[in-house]
Design a protein around this nucleic acid. Structure first.
Lengths: 144, 144
DNA sequence: CCAACTTCGTCAGAGTCTCTTACCATCTCG
DNA sequence: CGAGATGGTAAGAGACTCTGACGAAGTTGG
């Protein structure tokens, strides 16, 4: 409702636009067998691998849900699970070969969209936006 | 993965933080019988009412899904459906009394969070952020 | 060492959300 | 008026998420 949109919607709109473009591009490149929910978990896998519980916390879902999504990503070949050498209870979720290829593709699409945004805002203001968002992250992201 | 987060995640993090705070606050005020999906539809109801199809488009879901969510919002007393005087096929979804009260509460919470963000960024940079996001909306929001 | 507690993960079951397909009613236009 | 477009509903299936309960492994304090 309203004259001036609240900041939440203002943040959400470009996020969704970007997500949509990435999905579209990945599907066109043959990576069409995963869902938004799976992607949001996949996106948070750390370079050396992450535990399911970590992924759950960062994605804002329960560990059961995260486990469910990782199962599917594993079946589709995007990730693999290996024992965690540091903890016998845990297993590390790592990006598998196919997952790495999809990351490459999505990187390209994100760069493309960011270029469009930069063209619209101007390089200086685009940099400003990123700086502002990074600063905001300090008080809105519990994980650093 | 990575040193510098992509802009998408940078946008998503504060969005989610704000949404979480609003939910928390609404629940504390007794508005605890609705879900995030329902809220995302509710949020887009225009002042004079909206058609289900409009809500679906703007929320990025099918009209069937929107209808499903509106049903629940109606049952919980947040919205009401009235015939659209301009079109015999259509019905307008309007904010009902209880919905209006929840809007009041959420407005207060949003203002509170925005004040925190302003305190963190500074008034000038907060205004910049909103301006930048509003500009970005021009190329990321299909509905104006 | 061992008992209590915590943490990582799984299983089972239910509720929520979303989609596709199909259909009816109404409106618009030629 | 008839054809096509549009607003909405119905039915069914699949995806996502949660709560509760549990086993296995790690941690801590006596």
């Amino acid at each position: 409702m309203t004259e001036s949109l609240n900041t939440g919607l203002l943040l959400f709109l470009p996020y969704r636009a970007l997500e949509f473009r990435v999905f579209e591009g990945l599907a066109a490149a043959g990576f069409d067998d995963f869902t938004p929910a799976q992607a949001r978990v996949f996106q948070r896998i750390a370079p050396g691998g992450s535990r399911t519980t970590e992924l759950a916390e960062q994605a804002g879902i329960t560990k059961q849900s995260a486990s469910f999504l990782v199962d599917q990503l594993e079946r589709a070949g995007y990730v693999e699970r290996v024992p965690d050498p540091a903890d016998g209870r845990a297993r590390l979720v790592r990006v598998a070969e196919r997952g790495a290829r999809s990351v490459e593709v999505s990187r390209g699409i994100v760069a493309e969209v960011e270029a469009e945004w930069t063209a619209h805002l101007g390089a200086r203001r685009m940099a400003q936006l990123r700086t502002l968002l990074a600063d905001l992250r300090e008080i809105t992201d519990p994980w650093r």
